[in-house]
């Protein structure tokens, strides 16, 4: 397994390389550039100034040279400066990554404690009153985009009943920056993301459990005299969770990319928020760094999914 993981990690390098080339080209193909947006158009001799700034930032060199320079610096740990915020890129990304990881972790926890148990409970008594009601509610939640859920959450729990903050990832009070403060700020965004996903997960879990409940080995378990609860715990649950756990691994990767819309809705300074800001100001260095991190997140998520798959299903072996 160790060798497999190493092989997979090494395999990511060419993929990440390709991604940076692609994003780099895409970024520079867009009209305008970082310098133009930074300057007040009423400055005298603005064209001269722009020319000067381009030169000192290396933006007048051929594109491939710019890329090679960026790559060399990046590998050496020099991620450059943010054009729009005038601080090192690391200082922009560091806190954003922490915020996003917290948001992702909280959202995943909500999904796990809402979606999965709900799906299991539905599957225990399918087509009953509770199951049917839950299925309808799920379908509704599933069809509402999660930013609408976010807007409702803000309206109800931040404005009508001002319990939670409607924006920012950290507060301003005396406990600003503590873990509790972070969690408090991440709660509404996390719930907004999790509610829709929970609906998906409960549907998925319910379907998976019902599918396993129909399999031959479940009948064998009953034929052995095991009682309903035992059959469920030892046979149905263990098998029914396999696709859920795998899906969960994939979703971890997705959430590291940041829930772009929800983060922006809540002005929550995570990866999605920072990426969007950087894209609108053409903040090249920030965009390069965030896309790379997001790509790493997705690839690692996929790797986690594959590893989890092998952990829960003995038929899967990587060696």
């Amino acid at each position: 397994m160790g060798a497999y993981i190493l092989r997979r990690l090494l395999g990511m390098i060419p993929m990440l390389f390709a991604i940076t080339v692609f994003v780099f080209l895409l970024m520079h193909a867009a009209p305008g550039n970082a310098i133009d947006g930074m300057l007040n158009p009423r400055i005298q001799n603005i064209d001269q100034l722009k020319q000067h700034l381009r030169e000192i930032n290396g933006l007048n060199k051929p594109l491939w040279q710019q890329y090679v320079i960026w790559l060399r610096n990046f590998v050496q740990g020099n991620w450059g400066y943010s054009f729009s915020q005038h601080v090192p890129v690391r200082d922009v990304i560091g806190p954003a990554l922490v915020n996003t990881l917290l948001l992702a972790a909280m959202a995943e926890v909500f999904i796990l404690i809402i979606g999965v148990p709900l799906g299991i409970y539905q599957s225990r008594n399918p087509y009953g009153g509770f199951d049917n009601t839950a299925s309808v509610v799920n379908l509704i939640l599933f069809s509402i985009p999660y930013y609408i859920v976010g807007i409702f959450a803000i309206y109800l729990l931040a404005i009508k009943l001002p319990i939670f903050p409607s924006q920012n990832a950290v507060g301003t009070g005396p406990d600003a920056g503590t873990l509790m403060d972070h969690i408090y700020h991440a709660l509404l965004p996390a719930l907004s993301v999790a509610l829709t996903s929970s609906a998906v997960y409960s549907r998925y879990t319910r379907g998976s459990m019902l599918d396993v409940a129909r399999r031959d080995f479940t009948r064998t378990a009953y034929a052995k005299g095991l009682r309903e609860g035992e059959v469920f715990r030892k046979h149905v649950f263990r098998n029914g969770m396999i696709p859920i756990v795998t899906q969960f691994g994939f979703d971890i990767g997705g959430l590291i990319g940041g829930a772009v819309i929800v983060e922006n809705l809540f002005a929550y300074q995570g990866m999605g928020y920072v990426t969007l800001q950087a894209a609108t100001t053409q903040d090249y260095n920030v965009i390069m760094a965030t896309t790379l991190l997001i790509a790493i997140g997705v690839l690692i998520g996929n790797l986690i999914a594959d590893i989890l798959y092998a952990v829960v299903d003995p038929r899967i072996r990587y060696d």
Partner: peptide, 27 residues
């Protein structure tokens, strides 16, 4: 159901056609 489950696997057992699918793959 309770009384019946005491009999299954104990006084009356059953085996099925497909030994692959009749055994739990993860146990």
């Amino acid at each position: 159901e309770q009384q019946m489950s005491d009999i299954r696997g104990n006084e009356i057992s059953m085996i099925f056609q497909e030994p692959m699918t009749a055994l739990n793959p993860v146990l």
